[in-house]
């Protein structure tokens, strides 16, 4: 298993991987606040801070919502590393989020 392509991919990421995460929120909505808290803890525990979280409040910046076609909030976009991934929801389901961000198994 450790020699699988996925493992190699993870290793490569680990070397020069810096994560850029853009979180679209709707003001102080409870789901948006939950998503931000979940994302922050994920960053610390699974990326050792190797990440930048960018938040966009769609209520204030509707053009940004148009640009990224954000129909539901909260919505998280993994901007870097590529490929781009979108996760919808308050990110409460950690294993799903980690899998989506290709971080499964980075820390047990």
């Amino acid at each position: 298993m450790s020699k699988s392509p996925q493992a190699k991919h993870r290793a490569r990421k680990g070397q020069h991987g810096h994560y850029l995460l853009r979180l679209f929120m709707a003001g102080n909505g409870p789901n948006s606040q939950k998503a931000l808290a979940n994302l922050r803890s994920l960053c610390e525990e699974h990326l050792n801070g190797r990440c930048t979280i960018e938040t966009v409040d769609v209520a204030k910046d509707f053009q940004a919502a148009i640009r990224d076609n954000i129909l539901v909030t909260p919505a998280l976009i993994l901007v870097a590393p590529r490929p781009r991934v979108m996760v919808l929801g308050n990110l409460s389901d950690l294993p799903t989020v980690l899998a989506a961000l290709r971080l499964s198994g980075s820390k047990s």
């Binding site: 679209f24 709707a26 909505g29 789901n31 939950k34 998503a35 979940n38 769609v58 209520a59 509707f62 053009q63 919502a65 148009i66 954000i70 129909l71 539901v72 909030t73 909260p74 919505a75 991934v85 979108m86 996760v87 919808l88 929801g89 308050n90 990110l91 409460s92 389901d93 799903t96 989020v97 899998a99 989506a100």
Partner: peptide, 19 residues
């Protein structure tokens, strides 16, 4: 191909339509 995790709402859509 969006991944779903937890609850969400259509605030984004309303924002775009409203804008």
């Amino acid at each position: 191909d969006e991944v779903l995790s937890g609850d969400f709402d259509i605030q984004g859509l309303l924002t775009i339509v409203g804008g």
